[in-house]
Simulated scan of single mutants.
Amino acid sequence: MVITPPGRLNLPRWRELWDAREVAYRFGQRDVILRYRQTAVGIVWVLLQPLVAAGIFSIVFGNLAGLPTDGVPYFLFSYIGMLAWNLFNGLVSRASGSLVANQALVAKVFFPRMLVPISSLFAVLLDFGVALVLGVVLLVVYGVNPGWGVLLMPVWLVCLLMFALGISLAASAWMVKYRDVTYVIPWLLQVGLYATPIAYSLSAVPEAFRWLFYANPLAWLVELFRASMLGTTPSEAWLAPAAVAASVVVLFLGVLVFQSREREFADLI
């Protein structure tokens, strides 16, 4: 094996990533074990977070504010929205600090560094899968039939993961040099929770301000994911192709940023 430094604008060596996939698996396995080891209720925490958030949103935005939900029970509407948000939030939160958290390995052991943030997918997808099962149960309880549109849910799920991973790769690379990112990411995610239609639909936003929300690609992905799960119609026809294109572009840019800074990791971390 010949180890050469990565180019600044070259794409990663995909064969090298695939050959070292066991590293990503071990990182992911460790994250899952550490997350649930010595917890009293274990994976129940995964269900409590979206349930409590959906309950609070139902009281504040559903009962007090009376926001429309396209004919869907508000609790179910907000819970499905939280599924998409928690997937994005969980991946960005975990992956953005993954290089710094594993600085001893990054500085001393050779392996494709991109596998460190990618390994965060394992724990995030496990949490999502458990919460999704409860979401399906809620669909049955409320008698909501999503129809054939539910077949597109995996497409929007993959797009959401690509979008989140692109942001995570760039953030993790920047955090190695600029630890300010540690404080910026939680703040941006907190703002993003309300700037993204989780507790409300895009149709509830006044026309004069709707362009602000349409400028947020994450809003497109959440709207499409929820529409496929609940059988509703997206507010605009262009959301689907725009969401796919945005996901691909963000992932590509995230890979480029990560690859351009990878050669500095061992010296700076």
Rank of each mutant, 00 (worst) to 15 (best):
I3N: 01
G7F: 12
R8S: 12
L9I: 12
L9M: 05
N10H: 09
L11F: 10
L11D: 02
P12M: 03
W14L: 09
R15K: 06
R15A: 15
L17V: 14
L17S: 06
D19G: 11
Y25V: 15
G28L: 11
R30K: 14
V32P: 00
V32N: 04
R37F: 09
I43P: 00
L48M: 10
Q49T: 11
L51V: 11
V52F: 07
F57G: 10
F57A: 14
S58I: 01
F61S: 06
F61G: 04
N63H: 08
N63W: 15
L64D: 01
L64H: 13
L67A: 11
L67T: 15
L67F: 08
F75I: 10
L76Q: 05
L76V: 01
S78P: 07
Y79V: 05
F88P: 05
V92F: 02
G97R: 01
V106H: 04
K108C: 00
F110L: 02
R113H: 08
P117W: 00
I118H: 09
A123H: 06
L125P: 05
V137K: 03
V137D: 11
N145H: 13
P154Q: 08
W156G: 06
L157E: 04
C159P: 11
L160D: 11
F163V: 04
I167V: 13
S168L: 07
L169T: 04
W174A: 13
R179K: 12
R179A: 04
V181I: 14
T182R: 15
Y183T: 11
V184T: 08
V191A: 06
Y194L: 14
T196Y: 01
P197W: 02
Y200P: 00
L202G: 02
Y214V: 03
P217N: 11
W220F: 15
L221W: 06
A227I: 02
E236F: 11
A243P: 13
V248W: 03
G254H: 09
V255Y: 00
I269L: 15
